[in-house]
Design a binder for these strands. Structure first.
Lengths: 131, 131
DNA sequence: ATTTATACGCACCAAAAGGAGAGTGACTGT
DNA sequence: ACAGTCACTCTCCTTTTGGTGCGTATAAAT
């Protein structure tokens, strides 16, 4: 089967896989996850507070939560040094890096097409905003 | 600048573009948006209630809301036939189809790597679940 | 006269997400 | 003795999200 655009669309999608994939995308597309992914890609290995500063505006709660999720999913590696005061380092795993690479396409699409989207929004407003 | 993975990372990202792109991805990665994108790709032109049935489990409120958003952003075209009872048809625009294509990479990544993710989750549970 | 069908809008409510700020444990520097 | 550091955790509190059910217009069908 082919879509009107001509590109291939899987005929039947395994619903279990679909559910799982959707879940993953949902998490990954999360605001903080993407930001953290970016800063870790740029800076390599970082510790907790550094990530917090570099992402900017994230609360400690969200930082911990997001980092835990990413660790759980195998995107980041968490290294604890048993010193005092505590020291914990975070860095991307290969899986995490491959995720960033996969999302690059969406990034590029959004960068290439955002003008079209904004134009569509303007047109929409004009049609429905004041009418 | 290059990431440890060797793939190119944009050096400086325009924060305005970044914000916009993040917003778009956030919306698009939404559960219902993705589902509707899929059914419209598969079935071409559909009307309101048909989309509701095919997506399965969506409330009318969310269906309307998501569809409006997609129309606003230029992903779907909405055609109203002034008949009674009302008839409204929806179909993807070229922009909508290109969006689906862009997300394909993420889909494929998730499909290819979901086993790794599940393994990571299991390992994580074993480390932290009972310990 | 009443029911049915369609594509919604609106008001209300429950659940979830997320922010703010205080507390913790143990050592180190003053 | 006492404040400072780090990586959290815990408890409120507010905001957001999403579901449910009701209302609506109008013509055709019963």
């Amino acid at each position: 089967m082919r879509s009107p655009s001509g590109r291939e669309i899987p005929d039947e999608i395994d619903p279990i896989l679909e559910e799982l994939v959707r879940g993953i995308i949902g998490q990954v597309a999360d605001k903080w996850t993407m930001l953290i992914l970016e800063v870790l890609e740029e800076h390599g290995t970082l510790r907790f507070t550094q990530i917090g500063k570099l992402t900017g505006g994230i609360s400690q709660k969200m930082l911990t939560q997001t980092l835990r999720q990413m660790e759980r999913d195998g995107f980041v590696q968490r290294t604890v040094y048993p010193v005092i005061p505590p020291k914990v380092e975070y860095n991307l795993t290969e899986l995490g890096r491959s995720l960033g690479a996969a999302f690059c396409a969406v990034w590029e699409w959004a960068a290439a097409r955002h003008a079209d989207i904004e134009a569509a929004r303007k047109a929409f407003e004009e049609r429905n905003g004041k009418a």
